[in-house]
Design a protein around this nucleic acid. Structure first.
Lengths: 222, 222
DNA sequence: CAATAATCTGACCAACTGGTCAGACTATAT
DNA sequence: ATATAGTCTGACCAGTTGGTCAGATTATTG
């Protein structure tokens, strides 16, 4: 290897590392903020606590995010983006398999990543001051579409007549509960954390219960 | 009416009023604290905000409650007491009617008094620092007993075999959700608040769904 | 190498936090 | 009427809050 190549490699490495450091700090701050905001809500979280959690000086947090509100907004947006991935569905799909997939993934997400779930819950409990518009526009549209699809399934006789609006609420409630109330549930179950077996078991339980209410059967019971 | 009687009446009235004022202030503070703690959590709530909400000087709050922690503990205890009233049940009871009654009352409580539900949720999301012992002792005992009763129902063939532990979680989740996520739900339903018809409708929906999962039928479908 | 731009942070600020307390006010008892 | 006990609150305190900024440090460029 020539000297020039080593130099170039070091140069590239430096640039790479520099970029990585920024990226890493940004990510560290977001992660730390998620933890603190999820645990204490927007008002209860302090920039100092976030800085300590991230292992950075407080002023450095303000270099990346001008204000607490902007950091909170960034964390919330990130959470929302990560959340609304699945459940893309049309009226031609099979209700049982769609609902099954959605519920299983929601339960898994709640168990494996309870923090975003708790963050969202905190925001809603506080009256959704930051998500007010998001709920009334984007989420509402998403929600209405899903309700329409479910109702078309009912019209097609693919499932029993069930209130689609509250069916969705029930899916959200019974899956997110495992994230939001993780502390309570683990204490009552006398467990330290959810393991893979728990996640599958819970996912199947919730799926079976809700599908039964719709007159449907999950794939593993066929 | 004799003069003496008037005097006595005034005396009694004064005492009554004095007692009433104390009682009223205490209640006002508790109500105000419930609102603020439920909305912002323990750390996020400020004594000043509670004082303003109660319409009293801040120092007066500290006359009734020595510290923020003690006020929080009092509000939490009050909420817990008010919550665990119903669901006293034995293995000789009828599953369908017991579950139906419990679910309906939980949904009604969540819709009519969402604040205690939100307060409890905030505490759990924050990691249950104040309720840790309560959950591991009192709530745990309550929970285990209910699990045993449900399992005995299953052994007696009174209902389909269903995981009793997660059945209880599901009941809690799908009822409390209407209190904790009130803001989101009302926005999506485009409603200002739950009315009596909503409460009955939601209660019946949740009851039907969960009973169906247990192979049971609610009373209104017989 | 120098110059320029990006990144970092200790020290600071006004506003707010939970909490205290002396003294004012009010009610009851004698 | 006076004394006693209970109730109330403005003013204050030390510590924390979100946020700023000058200047140090580091990286990039020409």
């Amino acid at each position: 290897m020539k000297i020039e190549d080593v130099k170039a490699a070091l140069e590239a490495d430096k640039k790479y590392k520099a970029g990585k450091i920024r990226e890493q700090n940004y990510k560290d701050i977001m992660d730390a903020a998620t933890i603190v905001f999820a645990q204490h809500g927007f008002k209860g979280a302090s920039m100092m606590a976030i800085a300590n959690q991230a292992g950075l000086p407080k002023a450095n947090i303000h270099y990346y995010f001008k204000s607490k509100s902007l950091l909170y907004a960034a964390v919330l947006e990130d959470t929302i983006l990560q959340w609304n991935r699945s459940f893309d569905v049309t009226e031609n799909d099979d209700p049982a398999s769609v609902l099954e997939t959605y519920i299983m993934s929601k339960v898994r997400l709640a168990c494996e990543q309870p923090l975003p779930s708790k963050l969202f819950a905190s925001e809603i409990i506080a009256g959704a001051p930051y998500l007010d518009e998001h709920i009334r526009t984007i989420m509402r549209k998403w929600y209405r579409h899903k309700v329409d699809v479910i109702n078309s399934w009912i019209e097609q006789g693919k499932m029993q007549p069930v209130d689609a609006e509250h069916l969705i609420f029930m899916i959200w409630a019974s899956s997110q509960h495992y994230g939001d109330f993780e502390t309570q549930i683990l204490k009552l179950l006398n467990k330290g954390e959810y393991d893979e077996a728990d996640i599958v078991y819970i996912g199947r339980f919730v799926t079976e219960m809700i599908l039964a209410g719709c007159g449907l059967t999950p794939s593993w019971k066929n």
